[in-house]
Simulated scan of single mutants.
Amino acid sequence: MSTDTPEPADSPPAIEHITLRRSEDGAVWLARDEDTGVASQGPTREEALANLDEAVAGVHGAGTEPTDEDLRELGIEPENNVSRSLEESEIFE
């Protein structure tokens, strides 16, 4: 994230407390936003931080709803993709 340009008014808050370290096997960099608990990884420091930015933005509501085509590519039939409350879910019993 660049500090040279002002953030748009509707952008998520800037990440302030980050932990950045190598994985135990040294294969990837691990990045964690300590404020939200969101974590990501990447083969380089830059990619780990960019992935973390994207993940934190998703937590703050950024992103787009998947299209029916996106869902079908993932093997999900859009007609069966209905959001319900956690109380109605059989998964979280």
Rank of each mutant, 00 (worst) to 15 (best):
P6L: 14
P8W: 01
P8T: 11
P13I: 10
P13V: 05
A14Q: 12
A14C: 08
L20D: 08
L20T: 08
R21W: 01
R22I: 05
R22W: 02
D25S: 02
A27P: 00
V28E: 09
W29T: 04
A31D: 07
A31G: 06
R32E: 15
R32V: 09
D33R: 11
D33H: 05
E34Q: 15
T36P: 03
T36S: 13
T36R: 03
V38Y: 03
A39G: 12
S40W: 06
Q41V: 01
G42R: 06
P43H: 06
P43N: 10
R45K: 15
E47D: 14
A48Y: 07
A48G: 06
A48T: 07
L49K: 05
L49I: 12
L49Q: 03
L49W: 05
A50Y: 04
N51Q: 13
D53K: 12
E54S: 09
A57I: 01
G58H: 13
G58W: 13
V59Y: 15
V59R: 14
H60S: 00
A62W: 08
A62V: 01
G63I: 02
T64M: 09
T64R: 14
T64G: 08
E65A: 15
P66G: 11
T67V: 11
D68K: 09
D68Y: 02
D68Q: 04
D70Y: 05
D70T: 06
D70A: 08
D70M: 12
D70C: 05
D70Q: 14
R72H: 06
L74P: 00
L74I: 01
G75Y: 02
I76E: 02
E77H: 10
E77M: 07
P78F: 10
P78H: 06
E79L: 03
N80Y: 02
N81H: 15
N81C: 13
V82D: 06
V82K: 14
S83E: 13
R84P: 00
R84V: 14
